[in-house]
């Protein structure tokens, strides 16, 4: 892997804790040009809203807020960092690799950067929902944006 620090479990653990305690892009906007997805029905617990602004094939902005566990919060926070500013095609490749990792299939760790912190989640089947909640939200919004286009 390009960045060997991302092989160190201590560092990965710190990353998750840090994104949980100080989540990035953690503020919703009133701007109506944003698409919005509320993810609350999948489980009893997590309740998050993800917003995005996708224009001309580029994800210009992603934001989120809500009540959720460390895995949901940190994985969504990292997702916003990773996909913000990306072209939709690039984003789809990253998302595909992320879901590959979560499903314990082949994936390219380099494109996932910090999000490789969730590489072991597949071992705790009940937490897969947590690690994918924000990623599913952005996937939905990308799909919608492509329908509109």
């Amino acid at each position: 892997m390009a960045n060997s620090l991302l092989n160190d479990p201590e560092i990965l653990r710190e990353l998750i804790m840090d994104h949980y305690q100080y989540p990035h892009n953690h503020k919703l906007t009133e701007d109506e040009s944003y698409a919005s997805v509320h993810m609350a029905s999948d489980s009893c617990i997590d309740d998050i809203t993800v917003q995005s602004k996708i224009r001309d094939g580029v994800i210009e902005d992603i934001r989120f807020d809500g009540v959720a566990c460390t895995i949901s919060t940190a994985s969504t926070s990292m997702m916003t960092d990773l996909l913000k500013g990306k072209k939709v095609e690039e984003a789809k490749d990253i998302i595909g690799n992320y879901f590959g990792m979560i499903d314990a299939k082949e994936y390219d760790p380099d494109v996932l950067e910090e999000a490789v912190a969730f590489k072991n989640v597949y071992r705790q089947a009940n937490r897969i929902k947590c690690a994918t909640i924000g990623w599913k939200a952005i996937s939905q919004m990308i799909e919608e944006s492509e329908k509109d286009a």
Partner: peptide, 10 residues
């Protein structure tokens, strides 16, 4: 603790 709770994934 938060550390231990996240630690189970490593």
């Amino acid at each position: 603790s938060l550390e231990n709770a996240v630690g189970i994934f490593f």
